[in-house]
Design a protein around this nucleic acid. Structure first.
Lengths: 213, 213
DNA sequence: TTTTCAGTGTAACTTTTATCACTGTTCGTT
DNA sequence: AACGAACAGTGATAAAAGTTACACTGAAAA
C-alpha cells in the first residue's frame, strides 16, 4: 500500500508537506507506460510515491538507453533541470510497475526554494545523488565491455527490486543497454556456464555472488 | 591578462564578490599539472579565473576519460558535490594552460548558500549546466562509434579554444577518448581523405564544415 | 487440441575496435 | 652531423560486438 507523504519525504518540514499535499496533483500510471517523453515540454516536476520509474536517454533513431531508476521518495533531477530552464525534456520516463507520482508545477518549485529550507536541501540532494549515479554510468560505458556492463545491469536490477529473479526478456535488456538480443543471449549463456546466473524463460536468476549488495 | 572577478562572475552580488575577494585564496597552476586527484579529500571548491581546466574520470587501471572543460567564470559541479558530502574527489582535474583558480573552503560555500541568493543561483546553475553536458557525453559513448566521437571531440576542442587548429598528439586524443593511438591515427587519416581535417605534426586543422559553432 | 508466436539458442559472417610489430619522420640535443 | 626521443603511418591479426538467418520451445490463444 502507498506510504503517507510525510513518511516518504520525512526530511521535508511539516509546513512544506502540507503545501505539497494541497497543491500537488496525484497521478496514477499503469505499468509499462511512458509518463514523460523526450522533447515534451516540462511544466512540472514529479515525486515518486509508489511503484518504480525508469529514466532513459533516447537518440534520434528511437533507441533508448537506461540511465537510472526512480524509487518512492525520490525525484528526477533531470526533469528538474529541464523544468527550471523551461526547456523540453531531455529524457524519457517509463513506469516499470503501477506507479503513483505527485506532480508539482514548476513555479511552486521555484517559490519553495527560498521559502522552505528543507525543499532546497532536497533539491540539492537530488542533484547530487543523480550526479554520482551518472558518474558510475559513464564509467560503465567508457571503460567496460558488454559482459561487465550486463552483469552491472543485472545486479542493479536485482538490487532495486530486492530480488535475484530478474523478470525481463533478453530483448528488453539489449534495448536498455543499447546492444542486440543475440549479443545479450550469448553473454548470458557464458555467464550461465560460469555459474553466475541460471536462465529461464522470461527470467534470469542471479546466483549469490556479488549480487544484491 | 586576468579579468577582474566582478567581470567574470557578474551574476554574483557585490557583497558576495567582496567576501570572495577577502576569503578566497588565489592559486596559480602551470600548464599540464594535476590540481585535483581522484580520491583526494576535497576541502574546497574552485572558481576558474584564467586559463583552462579539464575534468577527467579515471578507472582503476589509471585510464582517464575526458568529461568536460572548465573555463574562466565557471566552477566544477562534481567537486562541489564531493565537497558538500565531505567525500573524496571522484574526478581528476588537470590544467591545459597556465591557470589561475580561486579556492573557497567548503564551510563558506554552505554558509553563502543561505546568505547570498546569487550564490545559490550560481551553484544551481553550475549543477544544471554540468548535468546537460553529461547527458551529451553519455549520448556519445552510448550511441556513437569512435569516428563520430572523435569528430565531436575535435569540434569541442576547437570550440573551447576558439581555434580550428588543434595542438594535440594522437596519443593524447586516444587517452582522453579511452581508445588507442593507432585507432585515432587511422580514423584521422580517413577524415583527412574525406577532407574534414588536414594533419600535421602535433596539430590537426579542422576544416570549415560543421566546426566551431 | 492445434495453432500461433514471443522468446531463446546458435552458427556464420561482418564491422568495429584493439593490439602487436615495425617503419619512417621530425625535432631538439649533444 | 649524429643521435635519441616523440610522433605518425600502416599491415597483420585478434577480440568484441553487431547482423543475418534459421531452428527450436513453451505458453497462450483459437
Amino acid at each position: 500500500m502507498i506510504q503517507p507523504i510525510h513518511k516518504l519525504f520525512s526530511q521535508l518540514e511539516p509546513a512544506l508537506l502540507e503545501q505539497i499535499e494541497k497543491q500537488g496533483s496525484i497521478k496514477e500510471i499503469p505499468a509499462g507506460e511512458i509518463l514523460m517523453r523526450t522533447g515534451q515540454y516540462v511544466k512540472s516536476t514529479m515525486l515518486v510515491l509508489e511503484g518504480m520509474v525508469k529514466i532513459f536517454r533516447e537518440n534520434e533513431d528511437g533507441n533508448e538507453f537506461l540511465m537510472y531508476y526512480l524509487q518512492p521518495g525520490e525525484a528526477c533531477a533531470i526533469t528538474m533541470v529541464c523544468a527550471s530552464k523551461m526547456e523540453a525534456s531531455k529524457v524519457m520516463a517509463k513506469t516499470m510497475e503501477n506507479t503513483t507520482v505527485l506532480m508539482l508545477p514548476i513555479q511552486l518549485m521555484d517559490e519553495w526554494m527560498s521559502k522552505y529550507k528543507s525543499w532546497y536541501y532536497f533539491v540539492l540532494e537530488t542533484y547530487r545523488n543523480r550526479f554520482e549515479e551518472l558518474l558510475v554510468l559513464i564509467d560503465q560505458v567508457a571503460f567496460r565491455n558488454m559482459d561487465e556492463r550486463l552483469l552491472f545491469y543485472l545486479e542493479r536490477h536485482a538490487d532495486i527490486n530486492h530480488s535475484n529473479s530478474i523478470q525481463l526478456s533478453h530483448q528488453q535488456i539489449a534495448d536498455e543497454l543499447n546492444s542486440s538480443r543475440e549479443v545479450i543471449s550469448r553473454l548470458l549463456k557464458k555467464m550461465e556456464q560460469r555459474n553466475i546466473v541460471s536462465l529461464h524463460r522470461n527470467a534470469i536468476e542471479l546466483k549469490q555472488n556479488a549480487a544484491v549488495k
